[in-house]
Simulated scan of single mutants.
Amino acid sequence: MPNGNYLLKFTILCLGLITSMRVSAQKLTKISPGEVWPDDKGEHIQAHGGGITRVKDTYYWYGEERRQGLDSNKRYVSCYASNDLMNWKFKGDVVQMTDPENLGRHWILERPKVFYSKKSRQYVMYFHLDNAGYKFARVGLAISEKPDGKFRYLKSFRPLGHESRDIGQFTDDDGAQYLIFEDRPLGFHIVKLTEDCLGIDREMCLIPEHMEGGAIVHYKGLYYAIGSALTGWRPNPNQYATAKSLEGPWSEFKDIAPKETNTYGSQSTLLLKVTGRKDTTIMFLGDIWKPKTQWDSRYLWMPVEIGDGKLWLPQPEPFKIDVKSGTAVKAPQ
């Protein structure tokens, strides 16, 4: 039989494990930019280069799954669900795809964004699909009948015949949906999707700036577009421009944060508009990439200061958001 000391140590160990589980599973009351962000299982959220799709009162966050131990022959897109933007439940990897176009070793699936088509009642995922040399330069499409269902690969194409690498998503206040994509020869495209979201209706604008990580928001009569310079994994000063119409003309691009901070080490992926009963908050969603330890890449989410043609990303600090009221405030220490 085990002696008393053994039982005491075993009991202490069990209590420690239980306490640890409770800590990791406890409800979050704030968003802490740049820190490990645990999901409902206590695991760091793996939704890099991602996008957000709202379905009624639930937000779905899709992104590149980069956890360790994945099958290197496949590419994965994760899905998380939340009602408050702070606490996220892992819904699984909704894409587990082998090479769909014979692209060869180290093929690429990046920046997944999901649109919902009321016409077809399908969820349509767009993503950057490429080979290791970035010469394929197309968007890939996958579809599902549920936001957290398994997405089935459909096809790939070049939007209006143009190269497409980094992509972004935008849904206007009238429900119209747009794809943003980076075209290395020409610049920053904004195109309107067809009602079924399976193709391009028309091009709204070509901004002749070489930028990636594109994102757009409409706020008080103005469109704000942001993007990142072409420096690969290395952060740079993200910039913004404004226009009264998506067709332009667009203003000169300006920095969204102090230039020396390189956007606080992050790269844009989405501008999220949270409209509530009292207020509207615009949040910058960015990735803090760690190329050598991609599974440990972090997220920089932060409310921006916006209005009258100006957009500014303040120094990141913990904050809490109330999606029902639409307000975001600094989190108490």
Rank of each mutant, 00 (worst) to 15 (best):
M125Y: 13
D93S: 13
G34E: 00
L129I: 10
G63L: 04
S156M: 03
Y123H: 10
S117C: 03
Q46T: 09
E110R: 14
G69W: 11
T53W: 02
E145G: 15
N83D: 13
K119M: 12
V114D: 01
D99K: 05
E64N: 12
R66H: 11
D130S: 02
K30R: 11
S82I: 09
K150M: 13
M86L: 14
L129E: 05
R111V: 02
W37G: 00
I143T: 15
L28A: 08
G50M: 08
W88A: 00
V94C: 02
S20E: 04
L28D: 08
T58Q: 02
R121H: 10
P100G: 06
A47T: 10
R138H: 14
T98E: 14
V77M: 12
K118Q: 13
D130I: 03
S117M: 03
K155Q: 13
K30D: 03
A25F: 13
N73F: 08
W37T: 03
V55I: 13
I52A: 02
Y80L: 05
V94L: 07
E145K: 15
I108D: 10
Q26M: 13
E35G: 00
G42N: 06
G140S: 11
S78P: 10
G140I: 08
R67I: 14
G34R: 01
Y153V: 09
Y60E: 06
L154F: 10
K56M: 11
K74D: 04
A132G: 07
Y116E: 04
L154Y: 09
I31A: 04
Y123E: 03
P38D: 03
H106L: 15
I45Y: 04
G42E: 09
E65F: 12
Y153P: 05
N87A: 08
Y116R: 08
Q68K: 15
H106Q: 15
S156Y: 01
P38G: 08
K135E: 15
F157H: 09
S144H: 13
N87Y: 06
K30Q: 14
T19E: 01
R75L: 06
I45P: 05
D39E: 05
S120W: 02
A81S: 15
L85R: 04
L70D: 09
W88E: 04
D130P: 07
A132F: 03
K135Q: 15
M97S: 07
Y59K: 02
D40L: 09
G34W: 00
G69N: 09
Y60N: 07
